[in-house]
Amino acid sequence: MHDAESSFSNPGTWESAGRVWASGEQQTLTCCRVTNETHDVKTFEFRVGDGMPVRFEPGQFMTISANVHGQSVERCYTISSPPTRPYLVSITVKRVPGGVMSNWLHDHMHPGSHLRAYGPSGTFTSTAAAPTKSLYLSAGSGVTPLMSMTRASIDLGLDRDVVFVHSARTPADIVFRKELHQLTEKSPRFHTFFICEGVGDEADWTGPTGRLSLQQLAAWIPDYAEREVFTCGPAGYMHAVREILREGGHDPSHYHQESFDITAGVAPEPIHEEEPVTQETFTVTLSRSSRAFKMNASETVLSAARKAGVAIPSSCSQGVCGTCKTKLLEGTVDMQHNGGIREREIQKGFRLLCCSRPTSDLILEL
């Protein structure tokens, strides 16, 4: 039987519903609607470029670019809308104390406002497999990619066996709380559970309080060990979830997590102080623009490109998110990634520029 959701990752079947927006291509986004989800979380809905529908996979993210206080700032945010509604794409953003982009969006993004964005990217998506039973685990803003997956599945009438467990600080901090309840009524095999650290101002909260434990997970979902698990949230939460599942005997090969902290934006590039500075230099040539720049062998290609004024989409700068994935046409690099690229992509010549240091002159497909 043909699975409609697989159409998202199959250009031949989904082409009529939207065009490919390459991850390295910038488009102008026009804000159409702003929705207050909680006291510090807003959803921003955008129309893309010429208004044509856009194809992406549920769980992918966009890298947005804006001029904030006179400086160009880039951050990546998961698309919270589903690809089944391709004429608008939305991001759901929590206001973070000291967060440059999150505060700017909350304070300045209104219907009619514009910003620039790179196309959808990322491999954290439910379309990579079609499990018979899934378990979605999220905390805080980590709900967004799993919400895109949920909305897409229910829009398509797939009626999959999915259990969605979300952790929040208080009941008032549960993002998409009302909609998630409504979605359980639309899909009989979709179930939700919430756990909050405290009750906050909602004294009549009847749900559990504290943090997710193996005992609570087993009580809610006795067959959790048989499910394909997708999880997203702060790094500490994802580490705790992995430990809970490991203790409970869940097979790690059926575990998937978003590979960057979506609440933190762009992480600084790691500094390898223990590495001696090498004076060897190489030339990097960009095949499409015929631009070229020199770089030191101790630098990452991404860092050197930025210094040379070359705009390359990036996010985590630690080899985990895959945003800066670029094809290497000629030359060799030393790439020390952290899971942001697949072996078959490496075999095809792709490299993550944020964690690649040159060992020869390079020609990049840029």
Rank of each mutant, 00 (worst) to 15 (best):
G198D: 14
G198C: 02
V199P: 00
G200L: 02
D201Q: 05
E202M: 07
W205V: 10
T206Q: 15
G207E: 11
P208R: 15
T209M: 10
T209G: 08
R211M: 07
S213R: 01
S213Y: 02
L214H: 03
Q215D: 12
W220P: 14
P222C: 09
P222I: 08
D223C: 08
D223T: 15
Y224P: 05
F230G: 02
F230L: 14
G233P: 10
G233K: 05
A235L: 09
M238C: 11
R242G: 10
I244N: 06
L245Y: 09
R246F: 03
E247M: 09
E247Q: 15
D251F: 01
D251H: 09
S253V: 08
Y255S: 04
Y255A: 06
H256A: 06
H256R: 15
Q257M: 13
Q257W: 05
E258L: 11
S259D: 10
S259N: 15
D261A: 11
T263R: 09
A264R: 14
A264Q: 14
G265W: 06
P268F: 01
E269D: 07
E269L: 13
E269T: 13
H272A: 09
H272C: 07
H272E: 12
P276N: 11
P276V: 12
T278C: 11
Q279F: 14
Q279N: 13
Q279M: 13
Q279W: 08
E280H: 11
T281F: 04
F282C: 10
V284W: 04
S287E: 13
A292M: 05
M295C: 14
M295F: 01
N296R: 12
N296L: 10
A297C: 09
A297E: 08
V301W: 01
A304V: 03
R306I: 01
A308W: 00
A308G: 06
V310G: 02
I312W: 04
P313S: 03
S315R: 02
S317E: 15
G319W: 02
G319P: 04
V320T: 13
V320S: 13
G322C: 06
C324T: 03
K325T: 05
T326D: 05
E330Y: 06
V333K: 03
D334M: 06
D334K: 12
M335G: 09
M335T: 07
H337L: 01
I341T: 03
I341S: 06
